[in-house]
Design a protein around this nucleic acid. Structure first.
Lengths: 101, 101
DNA sequence: ATAATAGGCAACTAAAAGGTTGCATGTCAA
DNA sequence: TTGACATGCAACCTTTTAGTTGCCTATTAT
């Protein structure tokens, strides 16, 4: 869980994910074309995304293809975010109540 | 957006949020009681959560009360996570398709 | 008025993150 | 079989992060 949050906490990595969202299955080199930093930089980010299971890979010869894995995102959404987002009404009203004092 | 992701990317901060989830409106000192580090540590985390607008505060005399703000969490869920979680079916099937080659 | 209490600010440190360069390895194409 | 191409690995550097300690300020209670 912590790993997923950490992986998502970086803009460059989210941009990589955006690229994969636009076109899934890109190789490292393809991803580098639109990146603002070196291949090794991209590679490191991909590794972190892979470790967090946000990205799944598949080798085809000497090419490594990258695919988004929506499962962990879904899990964070279900197990964590919903908990806090749900409280929307009660929390805001509690705050208001308190401010009125 | 980046600020929110970064704020959420730390376990200690998520624990602080958990505490506020359990009981909203806690003061800094009250939050310290269950924390594993110094008051200044907690204070810094609260500041980061506040900067990300994940926590809203309210002074009452010399006491600062802290409240969860579910809005940014909700926004991340709506604007970002849904985008990726939605792709669940298509992505998994695409991966399978590719693996079969 | 004074002491205790709640919190803030600033400087410092250690560790982690984000990025780089250089070199090694495995696969494909001529 | 040799050269080019796709990627990996490791060392290094710089900035950020997470946490500390020490001291200052404001509010409350006696």
């Amino acid at each position: 869980m912590d790993q997923i949050f950490k992986a998502l906490a970086n803009k460059s990595r989210r941009e990589v994910m955006d690229q994969l969202f636009a076109r899934d299955g890109l190789t490292l080199n393809e991803l580098c074309e639109n990146a603002s930093f070196s291949r090794q930089g991209v590679s490191k980010h991909l590794q972190i995304l892979e470790d967090a299971d946000l990205v799944v890979t598949h080798w085809s010869g000497r090419e490594k293809h990258h695919y988004l894995n929506p499962m962990p995102v879904h899990e964070i959404s279900e197990r964590w975010l919903k908990k806090y987002a749900r409280r929307q009404m009660t929390a805001v009203s509690a705050l208001k109540k308190n401010l009125e004092k």
